[in-house]
């Protein structure tokens, strides 16, 4: 069983500061949040029903019960076809996983932490408005913690929002993505069992959005691949959103440009592009908050098209 840290183990961000951040971010991201929720509504809400019903002159499948009356009426009562009529109910469980490691912090001259929290507020608000399903928030670094459980009521009040942001201090001194994925898969498996027992929990979609600067020890890349395969087998979609530091004074700091040096057996350094070994099949790079709604919607649209085909 994966370890989740207890709620009180780690020091919290100051409450007044977190409250101020929540209200500031919410105001700042309001328009983007609305844009995201209207784009997601089109994608997440099923437009095609899976159930067939009704009596029509044309349709998808014959209604067997109507065949005898049809013949008996000398082929006059010809509304013998069924159509897709009732849109099936889709349920979502969405985990927003925010990197709480210190590479994200101001102290490390990175604005990724702030961008991640702004994105968290924006995406959480958009999903809450959509009423798409359950939303949870995990933080990760050395450990994984639950900042907001899937079963908790949506954080709509400034107080609930502040309590959420208080958990993120960007002070964890490693970025254990392997542990995050292991925990996410296990968490979703447990949540699926609970949801399956509930009425109407037949079509459940599970989605994890990882918000991080994308800096993972390269030696972990190979260990992440089997976990990403396992997530796919469990029908858990993992989207990696790279919070890229793109302030004007941080030119050349983009993870897109980042290289890594390794020494071969002969001691000769070889330089590779860091992202070439990045193991996440679905990732997007966000330089500015404004990029996120469109990019995320486009990626989810592609993914839904793939799984539905």
């Amino acid at each position: 069983q994966t370890h989740l840290t207890e709620h009180d183990e780690q020091p919290l961000r100051d409450y007044a500061e977190a409250l101020d951040m929540w209200t500031t971010f919410q105001t700042k991201t309001q328009t983007l949040s609305q844009s995201l929720s209207s784009q997601l509504r089109l994608i997440l809400t099923p437009t095609q029903s899976t159930k067939l019903s009704g009596s029509f002159r044309t349709g998808k499948r014959l209604n067997i019960k109507k065949i005898i009356p049809y013949i008996a009426s000398s082929y006059k009562r010809d509304k013998i076809w069924m159509r897709r009529a009732i849109p099936s109910k889709r349920a979502y469980q969405i985990l927003l996983c925010v990197d709480d490691s210190s590479s994200m912090s101001d102290g490390n001259r990175s604005s990724s932490g702030r961008l991640a929290l702004e994105s968290l507020v924006m995406v959480a608000r958009a999903l809450t408005v959509l009423e798409a399903g359950q939303i949870g928030v995990l933080g990760f670094g050395t450990d994984v913690f639950v900042a907001h459980a899937l079963t908790d009521p949506a954080p709509t009040s400034p107080h609930a929002g502040a309590r959420l942001l208080q958990r993120f201090r960007f002070a964890q001194d490693t970025t254990d993505m392997v542990r995050l994925l292991r925990t996410t898969i296990d968490h979703f498996r447990d949540a699926r069992l609970v949801q399956a027992a509930a009425p109407g929990g037949d079509e459940l979609w599970q989605l994890a959005l990882v918000m991080s600067d994308g800096l993972v020890q390269s030696r972990d890349h190979a260990r992440l691949r089997p976990l990403l395969r396992e997530a796919m087998e469990q029908r858990v979609m993992v989207v990696f959103i790279v919070m890229d530091d793109a302030r004007d004074d941080a030119r050349g700091h983009s993870v897109l440009e980042l290289k890594e040096a390794r020494f071969g057996q002969d001691g000769v350094p070889v330089i590779h592009r860091y992202l070439d070994s990045f193991p996440f099949p679905y990732y997007l790079i966000v330089h500015h908050l404004d990029d996120l709604p469109g990019a995320l919607a486009a990626l989810l649209r592609t993914w839904f098209a793939e799984v539905n085909s």
Binding site: G252, E257, K259, A261
Partner: peptide, 11 residues
Amino acid sequence: LPETKRQLLVP
């Protein structure tokens, strides 16, 4: 160094 080469992951 050009700006795009100034940051690097090293052992």
